[in-house]
Design a binder for these strands. Sequence first.
DNA 1: TTCCTTGCAAAACTTTTGCATTAAA
DNA 2: TTTAATGCAAAAGTTTTGCAAGGAA
Lengths: 136, 136
Amino acid sequence: MNAIHPDIVNERLRGCGILPTVQRVRIASLLLVAPQHLTADQILGELRSRGERVSKATVYNTLNLLAGKGVIRQLAVDGGCAWFDSNTAPHFHFQDVDTGALTDLPPETVRFERLPLPPMGTEYAGIELFIRLRRV
Amino acid sequence: MNAIHPDIVNERLRGCGILPTVQRVRIASLLLVAPQHLTADQILGELRSRGERVSKATVYNTLNLLAGKGVIRQLAVDGGCAWFDSNTAPHFHFQDVDTGALTDLPPETVRFERLPLPPMGTEYAGIELFIRLRRV
DNA sequence: TTCCTTGCAAAACTTTTGCATTAAA
DNA sequence: TTTAATGCAAAAGTTTTGCAAGGAA
């Protein structure tokens, strides 16, 4: 598994007005090492298997904090638990219907010819596109 | 609120191999009366307010059964609880970011110019498109 | 009768919250 | 020293499950 220098994460968090505590840096480092999709439970499990102590509550609090500041993105996928995406650039996803696992879609493979105008009194807050895949 | 003839629902369920019991017909009738999006809890509340007795477990079991047979569609929306859509034709959704409420998108307002090929060994199982709206 | 469905309560899960303890500035 | 974050356990919310009782064929 790759690593990311703690100072980089530290500065990234500070830049967003987030106090970089030990636990927050651990969680952010894990996600930001590469573009990926992880659940809260996967993050907790990975940190604990490394011997780094974090509580479940802190994992959730930190993920919500990071998502609120735009460091990561919470994906609105169904199925029991939330997925957190370390790639905050606009992009779409493949999703395996059986496992729920997500894969980034190459951005240039999707193009819209037509999209609706937002209804009166509203504005776009984002577009989520999931292409579900079944194994054959 | 409109009504739908019980016989119609009866036949619809039988046609899918579902035994049309009293509770199942109540739940299906509520959903199928119009294209709409309801949560399990909304369905339970509506039936109870009409004085029709159903248990929570049966609502969930029935919704899963109907979705499994393709009578309704379970939407993969994030946020605590599942939404069930009585419109099974291919279509997309607006979603209010604050309330989570869903609205059907007029189908002709979305057109793709380009979509990715399914990766080797997979095939399309469906496309979910949510356009999130924020009130201004 | 035989099989399937229902209802209730309890269990299983994910996520949030209250509060004493601990760490950061 | 003062303020904010952490950890634990308990609470909250949605969904599933086990089992006795009731309904359909």
